[in-house]
């Protein structure tokens, strides 16, 4: 009879289990990552908008697909593309209650939606361009991991596809619009930013005016007090307050 000392073998077995488990965990994680970085996005199958969209019911397709995409891949660089979703949703509007057919969306609305999408693309493109140099430099120095760079490259590639897609859609909506749409979108992006900045600056006007009124009344009050002091030699007590409240000129002002 072979006499096995099970107790004595427990340690080696435990060692083997831990080793095997660690290797397996590593390989699953590694393979999942690898799958994530290597699944290239499939060529776009979005057909030009004049013909119906290829997927009959996008609602049923989208959730599970985007879910697998997220778990199999690294997280995407950009968040969801709201403008693109709006544009595509407009192409697939649901029929209103009671109506048989989905309402026909006028071309003007579709064009506006596509233009909004192009504007967002321009902003993302600018973001990618500025981020690329910084990202590359950081990668060379080893400050960022390889997966970040992979995510970045994928975002860049997807951007290219997205741009091509928008141009195709534009040409389908109006002849020869494709070459122009991004010029327009670029100006829209720049104009929007400029107007926003100017509005921000102009919004300060009221606060600045109020501040100056208060400050001026303080200066006046100080002057009055100086006059009083030179007559009586007495001092009044007051407190200083920097908020933009217009106060009666009797208050003592703080120097600023």
């Amino acid at each position: 009879m072979l006499d096995i000392d099970w107790k004595g073998l427990a340690l080696p077995f435990a060692y083997l289990i831990v080793l095997g488990g660690a290797l397996m965990t590593f390989s699953t994680i590694y393979r999942r990552r690898k799958a994530g970085t290597q699944t290239n996005p499939q060529p776009p199958s979005l057909s030009p908008s004049k013909t119906p969209y290829r997927h009959p019911s996008p609602q049923t397709l989208t959730p599970n697909f985007s879910h697998t995409a997220e778990s199999a891949n690294l997280a995407p660089w950009f968040g969801p593309h709201l403008q693109r979703d709006i544009y595509l949703s407009l192409l697939h509007l649901d029929p209103e209650d009671g109506a048989e057919k989905a309402p026909k969306v006028p071309d003007g609305v579709l064009r506006a939606a596509l233009l909004r999408r192009a504007v967002e693309d321009i902003e993302r493109l600018i973001h990618i361009k500025t981020a690329k140099q910084a990202c590359g430099a950081l990668l060379q120095r080893g400050s960022v991991g390889d997966d970040l760079w992979q995510r970045f490259l994928r975002a860049e590639k997807e951007m290219e596809e997205e741009l091509r897609d928008v141009v195709t859609e534009a040409n389908a909506l109006a002849p020869n619009w494709g070459p122009v749409i991004f010029q327009s979108a670029h100006e829209i992006a720049a104009n929007t930013k400029l107007r926003q900045r100017l509005e921000e600056i102009q919004a300060q006007t009221e606060a600045e005016k109020a501040w100056w009124l208060k400050k001026r009344s303080q200066i006046q009050a100080e002057f009055m007090k100086e006059l009083d002091e030179s007559e009586k030699g007495s001092t009044k007590d007051g407190h200083e307050d920097d908020a933009v409240v217009i106060d009666s000129p009797s208050k003592k002002g703080g120097k600023k």
């Binding site: 609602q59 989208t62 995409a69 979703d85 595509l88």
Partner: peptide, 9 residues
């Protein structure tokens, strides 16, 4: 924009 074939309705 994780994948180009799909969108959220």
């Amino acid at each position: 924009m994780s994948d180009l074939d799909h969108f959220s309705m």
